[in-house]
């Protein structure tokens, strides 16, 4: 199979088999291979290719922010001058306390914000301090901002591709 092969049915089966997590056994790729009727070498080769193409962002652990002490999770939202948003968005995204940073469409009149940045801290005072730092960075390119604290996880299953 060439390296540039598109996402095929066996890749899809591999996604379905691993979206719940990697097996916690000494030879996880062999365990997957057995389940999928492939060789372990084939499983590893496909995973490497999916990583190279960006279809897999990374292989690793997803911490639960609450459980590791980041109990204040603020989705900060900003109304930023369209002419400067890409330059400023990149600067906000590079801040070490911002875990996700996206440009999204406004939905006027109810939603004037076009920049979203997730900020985590152990308490709300910590989040507020970080909001001040972002506000300083954006300066007069920002017309308004808000923060939406999460108060409850209603569902968290991650990506689910049907079997």
């Amino acid at each position: 199979m060439p390296d540039a092969a598109p996402f095929d049915e066996d890749d899809r089966r591999l996604v379905v088999a691993t979206q719940g997590g990697l097996p916690l056994v000494p030879h996880p790729y062999h365990a997957l291979a057995e389940r999928l009727g492939m060789t372990a070498a084939e499983v590893q080769k496909r995973l490497r290719r999916l990583l190279e193409t960006g279809a897999i962002r990374r292989i690793g652990a997803v911490p639960n922010h609450y459980a590791i002490g980041y109990t204040a999770n603020g989705m900060t939202v900003w109304d930023v001058d369209d002419a400067r948003i890409d330059e400023l968005g990149a600067a906000v995204g590079a801040l070490d306390f911002v875990t996700h940073c996206y440009r999204r469409p406004r939905c006027l009149p109810e939603w004037p914000y076009n920049l979203f940045a997730m900020v985590h801290s152990s308490n709300r005072e910590g989040v507020q301090e970080k909001i001040s730092l972002i506000a300083n960075l954006l300066g007069d390119a920002c017309r308004a901002h808000d923060v939406l604290y999460s108060s409850r996880i209603l569902k968290k299953t991650g990506l689910r591709i049907a079997d």
């Binding site: 997590g21 990697l22 279809a55 897999i56 911490p63 639960n64 459980a67």
Partner: peptide, 12 residues
């Protein structure tokens, strides 16, 4: 203990 919600490949 849900300290980790998942361990494995993160798909884009």
């Amino acid at each position: 203990a849900r300290v980790l919600t998942r361990f494995g490949p993160m798909f884009q």
